[in-house]
């Protein structure tokens, strides 16, 4: 009974994904001739080629990489420095500023969409990667700062004092002493913001209208509108491509991802 329940549970969670990958290998005729739960008759990789080239998923994928990588890098850099200033350094008003950052977790994206659109329109930044990167970094800061501050709390102050006695400047103490001690935090912030930015639809949809600048999620949406109804094989291939990076990250780093994503809730 227990074993059945647990097996059923795992099957329910995995079945849609297994169906997705198997279906992405089917020829178009198999969808109309066989029931959709039938196994593929062969390995039809042409779906991936079609989605990647004629469906432009390749362009979207590359666009996403070019936005996601700099964004994640900047989120990590800004969160690591800001949290150091907020948690380790002593100055009046630092708790208020920290609260200001953390309050950002609550703000719905819709609240800032129109002013940002106006700003980017005036600056001619619509359809640019810069607009997306800037916005993603801004949205990544609240949770990132919150997580990093938590980790800096655990850095023993004696270690920093020792560095000062040895004649280190505050920047050296940050880079050589504090930073190496919060490596876990950096990895966590990087992972969480990667997942958020890779999966974003709202911001990318708003700030890009040019089809050549679409990210993977807005591109997938457009792809499904255009080909989705009739051409199931390439659509399944496109979905697989869009999920692959996050799935890969999760397969390799699952426990760290789980800790990172739930940290906000467990500590909060």
């Amino acid at each position: 009974m227990r074993r059945t329940a647990i097996t059923l549970l795992v099957v329910v969670e995995i079945l849609p994904l297994v169906w997705l990958f198997l279906s992405s290998l089917k020829q178009e005729s198999e969808f109309s001739l066989n029931p959709v739960y039938a196994l593929p008759e062969g390995i039809h990789l042409q779906n991936y080629v079609d989605a990647w080239t004629t469906g432009r998923v390749g362009t979207y994928f590359l666009n996403s990489l070019l936005v996601v990588l700099p964004s994640v890098l900047l989120v990590v850099l800004l969160c690591a420095t800001a949290a150091f200033a907020l948690e380790i350094l002593r100055w009046p008003g630092r708790n208020k500023v920290l609260l200001l950052f953390i309050a950002g977790i609550l703000v719905p994206g819709q609240m800032v969409l129109l002013p940002l659109f106006t700003i980017y329109f005036q600056l001619g930044l619509l359809n640019s990667k810069l607009a997306l990167i800037l916005t993603y970094v801004g949205f990544g800061l609240p949770l990132g700062v919150f997580l990093m501050v938590g980790y800096y709390k655990a850095v023993p102050r004696e270690v920093l004092e020792a560095a000062v006695v040895d004649g280190a400047t505050v920047y050296q103490a940050f880079r050589r002493v504090a930073l190496p001690m919060v490596g876990n935090a950096i990895a966590t912030v990087a992972l969480v913001s990667f997942l958020f930015i890779w999966g974003d639809l709202l911001l990318a949809l708003t700030f890009t209208s040019d089809s050549g600048e679409r990210t993977i999620q807005t591109g997938l949406l457009a792809f499904a509108d255009q080909y989705g109804a009739r051409r199931w094989g390439p659509t399944f291939a496109a979905i697989s491509i869009a999920t692959l990076p996050t799935l890969l990250v999760f397969v390799i780093l699952n426990q760290r991802v789980i800790r990172g994503l739930t940290a906000g809730a467990v500590k909060g």
Partner: peptide, 18 residues
């Protein structure tokens, strides 16, 4: 726990299209 956790890391658009 890990397997049941997995879907939340997948992009919502991809899951919805599926």
């Amino acid at each position: 726990r890990t397997v049941v956790f997995a879907p939340i890391v997948l992009p919502t658009v991809a899951v919805a299209t599926l």
